[in-house]
Amino acid sequence: MYDIALTVAACLRSGTRVHVSWVVGSDLTLAGGAPLDPNSSLALTPGGGRVGSLCAGALDQQLAEHASVLGETGGRVVRVAVGELEAEAFGLAGAGTATAVVLNGELLPAATWELLQERQPLRVRLAREGDELTAAALQDPDGHEAGSSVNDLEVVTTCRPVPTVVLAGGGPVLAALEQMAPLLGWRAQRASDADTARALVVGLGPGDAVVLAMHDVELAGPVLASTLDGRAGYVAALGSRAMQQSRETWLSGRGIEGLERIHTPAGLDIGADGPAQVAVAILAQAIAERSGRAQAKA
């Protein structure tokens, strides 16, 4: 639920109704047999607004229909199915079913959204009467893995943040990073355009990273500005010395602070040769930042 926390919190502050949904049981898998992300969730606002997705988007429309008849309070346990054609269209391994919860965002304790925005682990217990969800409470997540359990009396979901690296732009280095990041247990999110990148970096926390490879300073500048306005723990930007200087001039000329957070040139100095080795150097530097063992900048 980390990806929708900022949106849900903003809706609740403004008095806008927002429904939240996530999968609590499923036999669906991604093509190739990869499991679904247990932290995936979907926020639904009146008028058809959606943030996030479930099962690669295959469940979103069905859950939006359930939310539209739910009303302003409470929640429900619902069951949805995906056919073969839908599965193929959304990149799933095959047809299947899922059990999900759909509830008003106000049903969850206010601290839920604060913890999620801080990218902290949490465990929420939803009391149920039949398929109706009647109450929610936070519990200690210690000792529990990410995922959900369901019985006749309750639904219990544990969320744990997965380190995320946003890859803004394109090129062979970012392609290599996209392949390598999952080997570390990280989630890689590609954003080929500036608007998508800016949306992705907003919700990042100290355990997350941003690597930028955009050659147009008018595109790269706003992405870096949004990143520096956020809490991403590691920020790197690829490019020549001339490009580095152009970005710095663009940012400083607009009063953007925190330029010292940007690692450029990106990656540890390991004599990297070629995109794959540069990607290794960048990931090594990001790991060093996360562990508090980063090398001092020259």
Rank of each mutant, 00 (worst) to 15 (best):
D216F: 05
E72D: 15
N104R: 10
L228I: 03
E289G: 04
V80Y: 10
Q62C: 07
A220I: 03
A188V: 02
A43F: 04
A276N: 13
L6I: 10
G83Y: 07
L184N: 11
T249M: 12
L70T: 04
V201A: 00
H66F: 11
V166P: 12
D27P: 01
T227H: 09
E86I: 00
A135D: 13
A288R: 15
T158P: 08
S246H: 15
G32K: 02
A136N: 09
R241I: 03
G94E: 15
P265H: 12
Y234S: 03
V124D: 06
T264E: 05
S291M: 11
T164N: 03
A34Y: 11
G233A: 06
G52V: 02
V223D: 04
L167H: 10
E132M: 07
G96T: 08
G221S: 10
R254T: 06
R76H: 14
D152M: 04
A232C: 08
V18I: 09
L283E: 02
Q189C: 14
A93V: 00
E65P: 00
A191C: 14
L183H: 14
A135E: 13
S240M: 06
S149I: 09
D152N: 10
E257V: 12
A232L: 02
T249W: 06
V162H: 07
E260K: 06
V20W: 08
R198H: 06
A298W: 12
S226W: 04
A191R: 01
E178W: 01
A9D: 15
Q61W: 08
Q295I: 07
L12Q: 02
M214W: 05
T264L: 02
T29D: 07
H215W: 11
V69Q: 14
L251N: 12
A67S: 09
G49F: 11
E248D: 15
Q117M: 13
A242T: 15
V102M: 08
A146D: 05
R290N: 05
